[in-house]
Design a protein around this nucleic acid. Structure first.
Length: 379
DNA sequence: AACCACGGCAACCGCCCATTT
DNA sequence: GAAATGGGCGGTTGCCGTGGT
């Protein structure tokens, strides 16, 4: 069954809004409000516009206290961190940035932030290649050394047991691969950016996010809605803001359950308010703790740490359906490089990286030797 | 001065979901 | 329970300004 059009397409004006139209719409809404019916609104005020168009115009432009342009570095960081956590849920991201609209943020991400990330990667790759050539001249076999250390599950387990950087997985290391045009193409894709961010700070699951009626993951079904792996608290940098953001996510997603854990807000939202333990392993002590739920941040952090350990171990053991450990990071590697040489450097994006406990300049070596140099994780 | 390429952004499109009938 | 309706959202398009040649 098709849907009836929301308006008579033949008789509605399209394109840019004139100042007169803006004034009509604004004065009417200022005086009467939207009346809860956008479709009827343009007829009431004599605008030959689609109701949806009026709504969009109001929300994105005419609404009071709208800010346009001039994104601060802090806002950049918030956008990036939330993108890591919840993906392209622009309306939720916008809710964290007063005065910003989802459309603005979406445009800002697509036109600037995304390019910032990609540009940084490319510059770093070039630098890395140079550096490795120099190392090769000195006879350093960094590739073999790194592979034997980082990808060995025993070593990884030791790291976990020693409680060294239990929250963020070290970047896994691939054997060097030939530099291909396919990789070059992937580098430019939206998916690649997301995958990169996933590996650095969280995971989107295109085929693991949906749940069936029993709240069990449906790993075969492609999902357009990414589900974050790492709790948002571990990504938003400063303590004190984390709870607020989580609470706001809950508020956006429906009635906040009194005992809901401050994680998986996205799943909560997707489940129409019903808390769903998606994407995760069958009951374990860790996941059980999470399901029990804690309302205070302090009492949940152990659960979160456990959960991170569990999930990271599963990823490292290739135990997560639909998740390839290295998928998405291919473009970070070329025939001459290893992951340890890639950091995001010293521009604005680097502050994002360092703020959120992801590798930053000068921290390359901690991949293998000194994980304690990672920034403190939320406690 | 004219042309072109590119980037930014406002607006539209189409889909999904919740609510109403 | 099914159909109709409207709101909301993310993805995409196309216009316009700007900078380079």
């Amino acid at each position: 069954m098709g849907r009836a059009p929301c308006c008579d397409k033949a008789n509605v004006k399209k394109g840019p809004w004139s100042p007169e139209e803006d004034a009509k719409l604004k004065s009417y809404i200022d005086e009467h409000g939207t009346g809860g019916n956008w479709i009827a609104l343009p007829q009431k005020i004599g605008l030959k516009r689609c109701g949806k168009s009026c709504r969009l115009r109001w929300l994105n432009y005419l609404r009071p206290n709208i800010k346009h342009g001039g994104f601060s570095e802090e806002e950049d960081n918030i956008i990036c961190s939330l993108y890591i956590s919840i993906g392209s849920r622009w309306s939720i991201i916008a809710a964290q940035l007063p005065g910003r609209t989802d459309n603005d943020i979406k445009n800002y991400w697509n036109t600037r932030l995304k390019k910032k990330l990609l540009g940084k990667q490319r510059r770093d790759q070039l630098q890395a290649r140079k550096g490795l050539k120099q190392e090769a001249k000195r006879g350093i076999n960094s590739i073999g050394m790194i592979n034997s250390t980082a990808i060995n599950p025993e070593n990884y387990t030791n790291i976990m047991i020693n409680n060294q950087n239990p929250y963020w997985p070290e970047l896994p290391v691939l054997a060097p691969q030939p530099y291909s045009s396919e990789i070059e193409q992937r580098r430019d894709s939206h998916a690649s950016i997301r995958k990169l961010l996933i590996k650095l700070g969280g995971r989107f699951s295109n085929n693991g996010g949906d749940i069936n009626n029993n709240n069990q993951p449906i790993h075969d079904a492609p999902s357009t809605h990414p589900h974050h792996l790492f709790p948002i608290e571990s990504i938003i940098p400063t303590s004190g803001t984390t709870t607020t953001i989580t609470q706001q996510l809950y508020e956006l997603s429906g009635d906040m359950p009194s005992s809901a854990p401050p994680v998986f807000a996205d799943q909560f939202a997707q489940g129409g308010g019903q808390y769903a333990m998606t994407d995760y392993a069958p009951a374990s002590s860790s996941s059980q703790m999470l399901l029990q739920g804690q309302s205070s941040t302090s009492t949940t952090t152990n659960s979160l740490a456990d959960h991170h350990q569990l999930e990271v171990e599963r990823v490292y053991n290739n135990d997560v359906p639909g998740v390839q450990v290295l998928d998405g990071l291919e473009f970070l590697y070329d025939g001459n490089s290893t992951s340890t040489t890639y950091c995001w450097g010293d521009d604005q994006m680097n502050s994002f990286v360092s703020d959120y406990g992801i590798l930053s300049a000068g921290q390359e070596s901690c991949l293998l030797s000194d994980s304690s140099s990672f920034p403190d994780q939320p406690q």
